[in-house]
Amino acid sequence: MVLLLGVNFSEQRLVKRALETFYGIGPSVSTRIMARFSIHPTAKIRDLENKHITDLTAELTGMRIENDLRRQLRENITRLRDMGSYRGRRHAMGLPVRGQRTRTQIQTARKLNRIERRG
């Protein structure tokens, strides 16, 4: 098991997939990070050297990911709501924000749009 940013990953796991488990890291960001530290695309956690692990942890620590990113998202929505904008109101009401029709098909908005959005 290898610890990356306080999370344990098994040795067999792909480094790319391990990075993408963090909120805020998707395929392109993980590719960029791995290219930066010269980790090949099919590398597994067990292939990483100690230098790679410290580099990755330092890089991830400096990035706005996980709770920091979630907080930023919530702050953005709260700001919209506080200034009384239409988008803020729609978020608060749990309705689509970007002009979609509301007659049908608004499950996603109902699920996600709220002031205290999960992420």
């Binding site: 590719t31 960029r32 791995m34 290219a35 930066r36 530290f37 010269s38 090949h40 695309p41």
Partner: peptide
């Protein structure tokens, strides 16, 4: 190649 340089 399929490898990427640090600048991607």
């Amino acid at each position: 190649s399929a490898y990427l340089a640090p600048d991607t």
